[in-house]
Simulated assay, not measured.
Amino acid sequence: MTTIPDSHTDLLTRPLYAHLATIRPDGSPQANPMWFSWDGQHLLFTTSTTRQKYRNVSGDPRVAISVNDPDQPYRYLEVRGVVERIEPDPTGSEFAALADRYGLPLDGPPGDVGHRVVLVVTPTATSHQ
């Protein structure tokens, strides 16, 4: 596992958006802005089994993220990694935790709660500026 540089850990602990890049079945990339959390070892994302990114990581678990500092736009962290596991989230608890982290009030679980999963990403390499 790759260690995140101390100088850039704040980019993972602040509620910033990460652009999550996955690999489509035809080999082309797909990137989307995503909510995420960092537990000190893994990046956690929530999605549903009906989304293309779920199908992408089910076929090829390699991913990359890029997060930039909104206060210093050229300061960034790129993390390359692998989806170590996909965990069911039938109550939407990870979605609720991320909604709280990003300041979105909820009136209950998301409408697609029956399809919710958590992507657990283990970093394998980083680059930063």
Results as ranks from 00 to 15, higher is better:
Val67Phe: 01
Ile65Glu: 03
Pro73Gly: 11
Val57Ile: 13
Arg62Glu: 03
Thr47Asn: 09
Ile65Thr: 14
Asp69Ala: 11
Asn68Met: 11
Pro5Lys: 14
Thr50Phe: 09
Asn56Ile: 02
Tyr54Pro: 06
Thr50Ala: 13
Asp60His: 09
Gln72Arg: 12
His8Ser: 09
Tyr17Ile: 13
Ser28Lys: 15
Arg75Val: 03
Arg75Ala: 03
Asp39Thr: 03
Asp6Arg: 11
Pro73Ile: 10
Asp6Leu: 11
Tyr76Glu: 01
Ala64Gly: 10
Ser66Asp: 06
Phe36Glu: 05
Ser48Lys: 12
Ile65Pro: 01
Thr13Tyr: 02
Pro29Lys: 12
Val63Arg: 12
Leu12Asn: 02
Pro25His: 10
Leu43Ala: 10
Val67Tyr: 00
Met34Val: 08
His42Leu: 09
Arg51Lys: 12
Gln72His: 14
Tyr76His: 13
Leu11Trp: 01
Asp39Lys: 13
Leu16Phe: 14
Trp35Met: 07
Ser48Phe: 09
His42Ser: 08
Asp6Ser: 14
His42Ile: 10
Leu43Arg: 09
Gln52Glu: 12
Pro29Thr: 07
Met34Gln: 13
Gln72Asn: 13
Asn56Phe: 02
Asp26Ser: 09
Arg14Leu: 02
Pro73Trp: 14
Val79Gly: 06
Glu78Trp: 12
Leu43Thr: 02
Met34Arg: 14
Gly59Leu: 12
Ala64Arg: 14
Thr9Ala: 13
Thr2Glu: 14
Thr2Ala: 15
Thr46Phe: 13
Thr3Val: 06
Thr47Leu: 08
Arg80Gln: 11
Gln52Ser: 12
Thr22Met: 08
Thr49Phe: 10
Val67Ile: 15
Ala31His: 11
Tyr74Arg: 08
Leu44Cys: 01
Val67Cys: 01
Thr13Asp: 04
Gly81Ile: 02
Phe45Pro: 00
Thr50Gly: 07
Pro70Ser: 10
His19Trp: 15
Tyr76Asp: 00
Lys53Trp: 05
Leu12Gly: 01
Trp38Gly: 05
Ala31Asp: 05
Pro15Glu: 11
Asp39Arg: 06
Thr50Trp: 08
Pro61Thr: 04
Pro5His: 14
Gln30Val: 08
Asn32Gly: 01
Arg24Ala: 05
Asp10Trp: 02
Arg51Ser: 09
Arg51Ala: 08
Asn56Gly: 06
Asn56Pro: 03
Ala64Ser: 15
Phe45Ile: 02
Arg62Trp: 07
Tyr17Cys: 07
Trp38Cys: 07
Ser28Ala: 14
Ala31Arg: 12
Ser37Ala: 15
Met34His: 14
Gln41Ser: 15
Arg62Lys: 13
Gln41Ile: 00
Leu77Tyr: 03
Ile23Gln: 13
His19Thr: 12
Ser66Met: 07
Gly40Tyr: 12
Tyr54Arg: 10
Pro73Gln: 13
Pro70Thr: 06
Thr47Phe: 07
Met34Glu: 05
His8Ile: 02
Asp39Ile: 04
Asp6Tyr: 04
Asn56Met: 00
Gly59Glu: 15
Trp35Glu: 05
Ser37Thr: 11
